[in-house]
């Protein structure tokens, strides 16, 4: 297994508050990797560091072996990194089809002069983009809403639109920030199914999520953050039984009680 993304000793401070503190982890190609932790653990900050929305204070981030920390935000899309946002960020006034076509921006190459003069090359590229965008919409199940204004979509549809927009750039790595937030169990199950199909297409997924059932069924590796630090890393099974993780989620008292009960159970056996 090769490492697609390698975050090493990444740190980010906000006025002395260590939002991300010396965090290292590796995302292997072709996997679904989960990033979990209580509120304020630094998960979204870590996403913002990887996608370049905020600059890294220390450490580095390697994508396919290349240090991407100094690159501006827009250059990362061209390398094959796409993301969605915790608070949906779509282009409300665009049609659904246009939104997905916009997602392909980094792949398009028609030169400015061709567009200014309306030359055939730019028009051919636009036709190709329209077809590809529609295909991405079919993939996420929004093809029948192609001409709808993006802002008029239902909440769950907007989440799927964001995924389609991310896929339009044909990314190697897709960062998903709480994709199941606000969804009912039925929608969450559909989403898990969709994400599995995305993964089968060869896209590596890194996702932040609070829905533990969702995380445990989907991810093959987890990284756990608390107060900006990495406290655990491993398979869902390993993480679930890790005392530090239980303590972070449930507090010291509950962790002690659980440990005591586990001890008693062992004693009975």
């Amino acid at each position: 297994m090769t490492a697609l993304l390698e975050v090493s000793r990444a740190s980010k401070q906000y006025r002395g508050l260590a939002a991300v503190d010396d965090v290292s982890f590796t995302v292997e190609a072709g996997r679904v990797h989960g990033l979990i932790g209580p509120n304020g653990a630094g998960k979204t900050t870590l996403f913002n560091l990887i996608s370049g929305l905020v600059p890294l204070d220390e450490g580095n981030i390697l994508f396919e072996g290349r240090d991407i920390a100094p690159l501006p935000i827009h250059a990362r899309a061209g390398l094959g990194i796409a993301r969605t946002f915790q608070n949906i960020r779509i282009f409300e006034d665009m049609t659904v089809l246009e939104t997905v076509a916009a997602g392909a921006h980094a792949r398009l190459s028609a030169p400015f002069w061709h567009c200014l003069l309306g030359l055939p090359r730019s028009r051919a590229e636009e036709r190709r983009v329209a077809a590809e965008a529609l295909e991405a919409l079919e993939f996420v199940g929004l093809a029948d809403r192609a001409q709808t204004r993006a802002g008029d979509l239902a909440y769950g549809e907007q989440r799927r639109l964001e995924i389609a927009r991310g896929l339009a750039s044909r990314p190697r790595l897709l960062l998903l920030d709480e994709p199941a937030a606000g969804m009912n169990p039925h929608e969450t199950a559909d989403l898990a199914c969709l994400l599995r199909r995305v993964c089968e297409r060869g896209v590596t997924l890194l996702l932040v999520e609070h829905d533990m059932g969702f995380i445990m069924t989907l991810c093959c590796r987890l990284t756990v953050l608390n107060f900006g630090r990495r406290i655990a890393c491993g398979t869902p099974q390993e993480v679930r039984t890790n005392p530090a993780v239980i303590e972070a989620y449930l507090g010291t008292k509950a962790a002690a009680r659980l440990a005591a009960r586990a001890g008693r159970e062992e004693g009975w056996q």
Binding site: G78, I90, F91, M94, S122, E126
Partner: peptide
């Protein structure tokens, strides 16, 4: 063209526009 689409994207959400390249 694609440039106009990028501009409309920026008008809609500058951060999301930067993230798509």
């Amino acid at each position: 063209s694609r440039f106009g689409r990028a501009m409309e994207a920026m008008r809609g959400d500058q951060t999301a526009a930067a993230v798509i390249g």
